[in-house]
Design a protein around this nucleic acid. Structure first.
Length: 964
RNA sequence: GCCGACGUGGCGGAAUUGGUAGACGCGCUGGAUUCAAAAUCCAGUUUCUUCGGAAGUGCGGGUUCGAUUCCCGCCGUCGGUACCA
């Protein structure tokens, strides 16, 4: 039997598929374990070597848990709705359903190639109507419920109607759009339309007008996390603010619980911090300021009520609803001018010059409730309409922005906090002693915050308030490729959420789904819109709708009657280990947690959190290599050439025909597809070379990156080659490390690696690269080492192409190697430290090689240990050892500590903490015996040079330290 | 600015509760094998060294018999986020 991975990889992959080796049952007496990967969006590019990192890690863990006797749910699916497929369709004319199906198949093949042990019978696909029927149904739960703050949970909207009928809005503690004052009689008197509007104020999925991120090029609104620096994350198009009617999910109702829940889950600190920041809880006070000459109270939110005596002006957001009312005649033109200016500013402009102070005076004044001071009211764009009340009390002495504003507009600054006892404290640190603040004088800041809040409350001019940064989730997209909102409107525009019998509301077949004439694509499917039940909603849901709950569908993927069966979800409960990229740290995880909490409130799921433990794998980067363009002077004329790394203007170079040329200027660079590049090491430095032979091969190559590079080469007249030792022509490329992406031409395809080295080598190498959660560069050079190791490992079992296994008793040393390995691998898999597992296998294999061990008692359990990492090789050798069932159905070897016990122990002998040499001691020697033996030793005496040590520290089994 | 992660040979990285720093692999050097090469195998590989040793985990301090590990203060890299009152 030969070591031939490309042969046995195929053989075993087929075997596992045909035998359903990885099929999971819902009906088992074994304990459950759920290992989940974030499902991919199946893009046309296929997988690159960065994707499988997390998949391989979770696969190893899933396989390990199976071998340990767990019933493991380890599924995979596809997040196939969303913008890219639709953009691709618009660009190429291929319908998203067609390209999606093709890509899904490609992904599945690639994943099988990587021996990922998914139960494919459980695969889900978010754009499949059988799946999105339940997505629509779950979003319906949001529509049919409201959040009762008193009970701290979601309740049916019918309960709310009963409450309103009985008592009106009195005693109603609800998460709401705005505070409504409704009486019982008033509610009863309302017609259907009015009632619908009132209820909409409370629904967890609601329709509302709001300023949204509008992207004209994409023809859709975007969620905040889909916008980066004022441009769309997808496509990098400009995004503007625009008021629109949209569907929302009331995530703000769950802000506190989403925050609290983070304490109960095992996520990284960084990820918890990101979610915490996103939720953005702050504690402070509401305060009411009377407005001079108006029967109005200006409400403001502040985290620093202690500084209220330092308030020297107020600021409203330019869009604040009272701006017009508060503007005096003489200020009207200035205010109008400023409002026009503010409205013209894009999100991008606002963000780019944050330090620029602008604003205008309304002409009106407020009265400070605590000291009756008269303070002017300004408007300025640094106050945001959507945070707090859209208005602030400005305290220039203790706020950086207020200070800049006061300085620019010549407003008084009153110091109210003496920080002289806190050197180094910055303006916004909540420390110091109050001054110039009436009854607060002399108090420390934390005390003063409490006192000021209490005073406001006693006066009826304010109260303690908690504020959250998080905004309700915009859940409408004016796009085609997503779940239609299953809503119909009657003649009065009253929306009805269609019941489960009418779901799914499927997408109408359309050829052209561009956004045009201000109409969403679905609005043009007129026959579809005019349904017998009423006029259909034409917005679709964002991609996050399907991924919110997919982990539940895997439990019971074909259930026609429910999104998941009750008994099934009671068995599988929740995800024990969730593995995926950190780029979804905020949005996907947060929205998924929201969805889960609603389902929990309504009794559909038994747990409060969907993902118990989360592992974010690090990104794998790759070199991005470039060729440089230069203008050179030769024989009085100019020429454009390609130059290697390290040239600058003024250099003299030799052209291909032997003439000399002078570099006039470097003129940019172009990316070279990594596939054509050779990595070399010169003087311990990585170099990337492009060979002339690789360029010559381009002529016949029809791959996309070859076409791209052929086109690049036409942009200059020649490449200035250098000769290497063998006389081959090359050019050295400039490079930097970066994320793998098609546009950077540095994608490395796992298929090629698997074909060349075998899947087992690829899997182990990816794990060997470093800690799973750390970003690391891809380098192909190390894979040879892993490949060599697997061959050596194989040769422990096979000699001269024949199985070479002895049934003799193994020696103590051999057993020690095995049990050391069992201990190390078991512990390290539990710690998700896969790179050290690979080292442990190498060490064991090296040790057994030296011992020339071929004992079945040692080698057989080792196959079970390595099976999660190298599943093909393990099954191939396992079968050769005479087994008729797969190694993946074996039992994990048990550690027997007795093999690890030593007769003697080697201890380092240190003097003043510096290790000098080691000595052997009997393993059972106690402290005194070790000390005596050490002092009697010749080397120790020599080191001590006749003197007695001041102190001898013996740590049994660890070391001996002598203080001299 | 704020939040988070990290900083160890030429490179990827290892080091249990504070206890032999550099495991394992790559690369490199030398050797064996070969007509030769590839592949394989063996030995060496932190730096300096007067060959006795000495220094050494971003920098500067501290705690300790002993610090890559704990504490304080800096510097740097990466990721996230930002007029949030």
């Amino acid at each position: 039997m030969k070591f031939n991975p490309s042969e046995f990889d195929r053989k075993w992959q087929q075997h596992w598929r045909e035998n359903g080796t990885y099929r999971t049952t819902n009906d088992s007496t074994k304990p459950k374990y759920y290992v989940l990967d974030m499902f991919p969006y199946p893009s046309g590019a296929g997988l690159h070597v960065g994707h499988p990192l997390g998949y391989i890690a979770s696969d190893i863990f899933a396989r390990y848990k199976r071998l340990q006797g767990f019933n493991v749910l380890h599924p995979m699916g596809f997040d196939s709705f969303g913008l890219p497929a639709e953009q691709y369709a618009i660009d190429t004319g291929v319908h998203p359903s067609v390209s999606t199906a093709k890509n899904v198949q490609r992904y599945q093949e690639q994943m099988e190639r990587l021996a990922l042990s998914f139960d494919w019978e459980r695969a889900v696909n978010t754009s499949d109507p059988n799946y999105y029927k339940w997505t629509q149904w779950i979003i319906g739960l949001f529509f049919h419920h409201w959040y009762d703050k008193a009970a701290d949970k979601a309740r049916p909207i019918t309960d709310l109607e009963a409450h309103l009928e009985a008592k009106g809005a009195e005693d109603l503690m609800a998460a709401e759009g705005e505070a409504l004052s409704i009486t019982s009689a008033g509610f009863k008197a309302m017609d259907a339309k009015e009632r619908s509007e009132v209820l909409m104020n409370y629904r967890l999925a609601f329709r509302s007008v709001s300023t949204v991120n509008w992207c004209e090029e994409l023809g859709s609104v975007l969620a905040n996390d889909e916008v980066k620096d004022g441009r769309s994350e997808r496509g990098n198009f400009p995004v503007v603010q625009r008021p629109m009617v949209q569907w929302f999910l009331r995530i703000t109702a769950y802000a506190e619980r989403l925050l609290q829940g983070l304490d109960t889950v095992d996520y990284s600190e960084g990820l918890k911090a990101q979610q915490t920041n996103w939720i953005g809880k702050s504690t402070g006070a509401m305060a009411h300021f009377d407005i001079e000459g108006h029967d109005l109270q200006l409400d403001i939110y502040t985290t620093r009520p202690d500084t209220i005596f330092g308030t020297t002006f107020m600021v409203l957001a330019p869009e604040h609803e009272w701006v017009d009312r508060l503007t005096t005649e003489e200020q009207r033109s200035a205010i109008e001018k400023y409002k026009t200016y503010a409205a013209s500013r894009s999100e991008l402009e606002r963000q780019s010059d944050v330090k620029v102070v602008t604003g205008a005076f309304t002409g009106s004044y407020c009265i400070n409730p605590l000291n009756n001071a008269r303070v002017p009211i300004y408007i300025a764009e640094y106050v945001l309409k959507d945070y707090g009340t859209g208005a602030i009390m400005a305290v220039p002495s203790d706020d950086e922005r207020d200070k800049r504003f006061a300085e620019k507009f010549g407003i008084d600054i009153i110091d109210v906090v003496d920080k002289s006892n806190y050197p180094g404290a910055s303006l916004k640190d909540k420390v110091g002693v109050m001054i110039n603040s009436g009854f607060l004088d002399g108090m420390e800041v934390p005390e003063a915050i409490k006192a000021a809040t209490q005073k406001l409350e006693d006066m009826g001019r304010g109260y303690r308030e908690v504020n959250y940064r998080i905004r309700d989730l915009i859940f409408s997209r004016q796009r085609y490729w997503g779940e239609p909102w299953p809503i119909v409107y009657d003649e009065q525009d009253i929306p009805t959420y269609l019941p489960v019998e009418d779901l799914p509301v499927e997408l109408p077949p359309m050829e052209d789904f561009r956004y045009r004439d201000g109409l969403a694509p679905l609005a043009r499917a007129t026959e579809w819109v005019d349904s017998p039940q009423g006029r259909r909603e034409t917005d679709t849901m964002p991609a996050t709708a399907g991924s919110n709950w997919y982990y539940l569908r895997y439990m019971d993927p074909n259930n026609p009657d429910a999104f998941v069966g009750k008994d099934v979800v009671d068995y599988w409960q929740d995800v024990d280990l969730y593995v995926g990229g950190a780029e979804h740290a905020v949005s996907h995880i947060l929205y998924s947690r929201l969805c889960h909490k609603l389902l929990f409130d309504l009794g559909y799921v038994p747990s409060r959190e969907p993902y118990k433990k989360l592992l974010n794998q690090g990104m794998i980067g790759a070199p991005i290599t470039s060729i440089n363009m230069a203008k050179v002077a030769v024989d009085g004329s100019e020429k454009t050439v390609w130059l290697g790394y390290g040239h600058e203007a003024g250099d003299t170079i030799t052209l291909g025909d032997g003439t000399e040329a002078k570099v006039i200027a470097m003129d940019g660079s172009r990316k070279v597809p990594l596939r054509m590049v050779e990595e070399t090491s010169v003087d311990n430095e990585a170099k990337f070379w492009l060979y002339q032979s690789a360029v010559n091969e381009l002529v016949d190559d029809d791959a996309a990156d070859a076409a791209y590079f052929r086109q690049i080469l036409t942009q200059a007249e020649e490449i200035v080659w250098t000769k290497d030792k063998e006389g081959r022509s090359y050019i050295e490329l400039s490079y930097q490390m970066g994320k793998m992406s098609k546009s950077k031409h540095n994608v490395i395809n796992p298929d090629d690696i698997c074909a060349r080295y075998g899947t087992d080598a690829f899997r182990m190498y990816e794990m060997f690269l470093g800690p799973i959660d750390q970003a690391k560069p891809w380098s192909v050079s190390g894979i040879d080492g892993v490949s060599r190791f697997l061959r050596r490992f194989w040769n422990l079992y096979v000699n001269q192409d024949a199985l070479n296994i002895s049934d003799d008793e193994a020696s103590k040393e051999e057993m020690k190697v095995l049990h050391t390995l069992i201990k190390k691998v078991t512990e390290d898999i539990e710690k998700l430290s896969f790179n050290t597992c690979v080292s442990a296998f190498m060490v064991a294999s090296n040790d057994l090689g030296k011992l020339k061990c071929n004992k079945r008692t040692v080698l057989e359990p080792m196959l079970v240990l390595i099976a999660p990492f190298a599943p093909h090789l393990a099954d191939e050798l396992w079968a050769a050892l005479g087994h008729t069932t797969s190694v993946h159905q074996a039992d994990w070897p048990q550690l027997d500590e007795k093999w690890l016990v030593e007769d003697s122990v080697t201890l380092p002998i240190a003097f003043n903490g510096k290790t000098r040499f080691t000595l052997e001691f009997p393993a059972d020697a106690d402290k005194a015996a070790v000390e005596a033996a050490a002092l009697a030793n010749e080397q120790v005496q020599k080191q001590l040079d006749g003197a007695a040590p001041k102190r001898v520290i013996v740590v049994p089994g660890r070391m001996v330290n002598m203080v001299v």
